[in-house]
Design a protein around this nucleic acid. Structure first.
Lengths: 245, 245
DNA sequence: CCCGTACAGATTGTCAACAATCTGCAATAG
DNA sequence: CTATTGCAGATTGTTGACAATCTGTACGGG
């Protein structure tokens, strides 16, 4: 047996999903307005759920909401992508560290994480860059969930939903990514978490973010990455122990 | 002249605000259900705006939403408070660091931050612990806003809204806080940002969070703070430069 | 006596109509 | 000719009614 939960998504979530898809296939583009009535008519529902769905996207930062003036698709810049990755770098390290303070290797969820990593090896997934990116983010999300800090994982998940849209909308090319290297990094990451080797986990996650952003920057015309990751995240510059007591 | 913006809050925001206030004065308590129709009747509006307001609180983590089953006030634990402060510690450091990479001392907003700090010295504010806490968080919010990273400040602001409610609901006592010391720390923090002395800013913010949490832990019966801030945030344990290149 | 089912009340989800607000354009005054 | 004002259309905000779903209780079979 083992059934899927019956209704996966509520109507507003479905609406939000549809709009995200429209962004990914280019039907909707930055600057476009979202008219509640039009979307409602198109999807065959009333304005209520559509309104809620749009608010969901607003909270996510995918659309800008202005009172009495409706919703407009955001026009993200490469700096937005950088901000998202700064968030993911920092909160990812928090999540990993806290996960390793628990006995996470023996948790049943840990097996799921490994399953999701295996999916990245599927040639069919590797075929489609978007699919690959989504599978990658899905893996990362499951890994971070192990820490059990719901606010932190909520923020991480939010950024994860933004990434594919931003990449698409900004026209970032990421076709020539080295899948083998990516999987190798993730393998090291997961192994570090299992054995609770914090230095390795820290290293692997930093490296992954650095590589991903570097890859994006390569495919993107005018990227200004310096001063973001190289000029350190500040907490790292100065020795932590200086501040004890 | 110079008028205030005419309508400050939308109806849903007003509803959310009212519910927060009800939590702060004890009218609403953890585990209580929020019935849309009841609240609507009480506030003299229809269910629509009330529904939206409740969703706002849901996104904030103040209520738990379950499909078709309504909203229930969360029953936070002290660990929730710790998670919030871990987030604030980490993201605060990011925000400060990025603010100092800009020429922030000459920005007009910087003067506002100093004004908000001055408010903490007002004896009338110091009288009321809740007022003091809100003024403090307001100051911090303005300070972090200087970094110009909207996603990061959005998360910080969200946690700031949670804190007073969590403290009240958990029955945390914080009456005997040393106001002078708090202001002194903030003064050092603001000075460090102005002079772009990153080590000092880093130190001051860490210390503030550590003191605040320590204060809460003192007034709270069974607090388990160890292993959260002392077992480091991970990024700090290992030298950053080890990973360069 | 225990378990599963059927119902009734309560509550959320959805809808379509109405009111309030905004935007752009045209008319008007200076 | 430029700037302000007033309007019409478009769109969001709000409302009350209706539909779908959930919760708890009472009933009936085992």
């Amino acid at each position: 047996m083992s059934f899927e939960p019956l209704h996966g998504l509520s109507t507003p979530e479905l609406v939000a999903q549809r709009i995200r898809e429209a962004l990914l296939d280019g039907t909707l583009r930055p600057g476009d307005r979202l008219i509640e009535a039009d979307i409602a008519a198109e999807l065959g529902v009333s304005r209520g759920p559509v309104r809620e769905g749009i608010r969901l996207l607003g909270a996510e930062g995918l659309v800008v909401l202005r009172r009495n003036r409706g919703a407009v698709i955001t026009s993200p810049t490469f700096e937005d992508v950088l901000e998202v990755y700064i968030l993911r770098l920092s909160l990812g390290l928090l999540a990993l560290n806290h996960a390793m303070q628990l006995d996470v290797a023996s948790a049943p969820e840990f097996a799921d994480v490994e399953l999701l990593l295996a999916r990245l090896r599927d040639p069919e997934v590797q075929e489609d860059p978007l699919l690959m990116m989504e599978a990658d983010l899905h893996f990362q999300s499951a890994l971070f969930d192990l820490c059990g800090l719901s606010r932190i994982t909520a923020v991480l998940d939010q950024t994860a939903r933004d990434i594919p849209v931003f990449v698409k909308v900004l026209g970032i090319t990421y076709d020539d990514v080295d899948h083998a290297a990516l999987i190798e990094r993730h393998q090291r990451l997961i192994e570090a978490v299992r054995t609770r080797h914090r230095a390795d986990a820290d290293h692997a996650w930093r490296e992954h973010v650095r590589c991903t952003v570097g890859e994006f920057a390569r495919g993107y015309p005018d990227a200004q990455v310096e001063g973001i990751f190289d000029l350190p995240l500040m907490h790292h510059v100065y020795d932590h122990h200086e501040y004890q007591g």
